[in-house]
C-alpha cells in the first residue's frame, strides 16, 4: 500500500538529509583521527607525553593563552602529568609575579607562586589580550579540548556511542596546529590573517605557533630525545595535555566506570534470574509465555 511507499520515501529523504552536511561544510576537511593513549574504556594518559605537552604549553602557548583553571598543584595530582610535589613547588616559585594583596598598607603586591595558585595568565583581561594581538582574542586553552569539535555526521555519531570515540577535540587541535598552509591561488590574506586547512573558513588569526626543534624535549640515556622534536609531535603532545587540562579526572572516571559496569551487569543478571524464580511461583506459570 501507499503507506509503505511513503515510509520508504521518508527514510530515503532522511538518508539524503543525513548525507548532505558533508557537502554543505565546504572545504574544511575532517581532522584525521589520531591514536590516543587515553581513548577507550581503559584509556590512561601517557605521563611522559603530558610532561612534554606541558612543556610546549608553558613555553609556547602560555605566551598568549591563559590556562588559569589549572593550578600548579594539579600537575602533581594522580591521573595527571605525574610531577612530584617538590617539582611543582619549584615550578610555582619560579613565577615571581603572582598578584596578591592588599597588604597592611592597602597595596597589592607580587609574590612567588605557591602550588595552590592558578597558572598565571599572560594578559590581565580580554581587552589587554586583544590589544596585544591585533584585535584577536587568544582564547583560554584549559577547556579547548572539550570546547572544540567537528561535525561527525550521520551515521558516524551513532557508532560513536559504541566505539566510545570522543576525541574530536584533540584530533581537531592536532589538525589545526599542523594545518598551516600557503593560501591557495585566489585567496588573499589580510594583515593578521593566516591560512589553515582545518580552520572553519580557513582564516585564522593565530600565526603558525610551532616549528620543528622549537621546544627542547628531555633527553633519553643516549643523549637524544626519545621522541622527535617536530611540529607533528609537539601538536600531539600539547593536545594530549589539553585533554588532561579539560578533563583532569578522566582516568579516575574510566576506572570507576569499569567497576560500576561490571557491578551493574552482574546485578542485572542476578535480578533477571530472581525475577524468573519469583514469577515461577505463579501456579499456572508453566503454560505462560
Amino acid at each position: 500500500m501507499s503507506l509503505r511507499l511513503s515510509l520508504a520515501g521518508l527514510v530515503t529523504g532522511l538518508a539524503i538529509a543525513a548525507a548532505s552536511p558533508a557537502l554543505a561544510a565546504e572545504g574544511a576537511p575532517k581532522p584525521p583521527a589520531q591514536s590516543w593513549s587515553f581513548s577507550g574504556p581503559f584509556g590512561k594518559f601517557d605521563r611522559a607525553q603530558l610532561q612534554r605537552g606541558f612543556k610546549v604549553a608553558k613555553e609556547v602557548c602560555a605566551n598568549c593563552h591563559a590556562m588559569s583553571l589549572i593550578r600548579f598543584r594539579n600537575l602533581a595530582e594522580p591521573g595527571g602529568p605525574g610531577f612530584t610535589p617538590s617539582q611543582v613547588a619549584a615550578l610555582a616559585a619560579s613565577y615571581t609575579n603572582i598578584k596578591d594583596g592588599p597588604n597592611d598598607s592597602g597595596e597589592m603586591f607580587e609574590r612567588p607562586g605557591r602550588p595552590a595558585d592558578a597558572f598565571p595568565a599572560p594578559f590581565a583581561n580580554e581587552q589587554a589580550a586583544r590589544a596585544a594581538n591585533g584585535g584577536a582574542y587568544p582564547p583560554p586553552i584549559d577547556m579547548l579540548a572539550k570546547a572544540r569539535t567537528y561535525e561527525r555526521g550521520f551515521p558516524k555519531f551513532v557508532f560513536d556511542i559504541f566505539t566510545q570515540y570522543q576525541e574530536q577535540g584533540p584530533d581537531y587541535i592536532v589538525a589545526l596546529l599542523t594545518g598551516y598552509r600557503d593560501p591557495p591561488a585566489g585567496v588573499t590574506l589580510l594583515p593578521g590573517q593566516n591560512y589553515n586547512n582545518f580552520m572553519p573558513g580557513h582564516l585564522i588569526a593565530m600565526p603558525k605557533p610551532l616549528s620543528d626543534g622549537q621546544v627542547e624535549y628531555p633527553k633519553g640515556p643516549d643523549g637524544k630525545s626519545p621522541v622527535p622534536e617536530t611540529v607533528e609531535q609537539y601538536a600531539k603532545d600539547v593536545a594530549a595535555f589539553m585533554v588532561w587540562m579539560a578533563e583532569p579526572h578522566l582516568e579516575a572516571r574510566k576506572r570507576l566506570g569499569f567497576q560500576v559496569m561490571i557491578f551493574l551487569a552482574l546485578f542485572a543478571g542476578l535480578l533477571y534470574f530472581t525475577k524468573k524464580k519469583i514469577w515461577a511461583r505463579l501456579p499456572d506459570h508453566a503454560s505462560a509465555h
Partner: peptide
Amino acid sequence: ATDTTGTEPTRRDFLMLTTGAF
C-alpha cells in the same frame, strides 16, 4: 494468581540473598 510454596527453598534463598546483598 498467587504463589505455590517454593519447591527449591535453598537455591531460591541463595539467589535471593545474593541479589539482596548486591
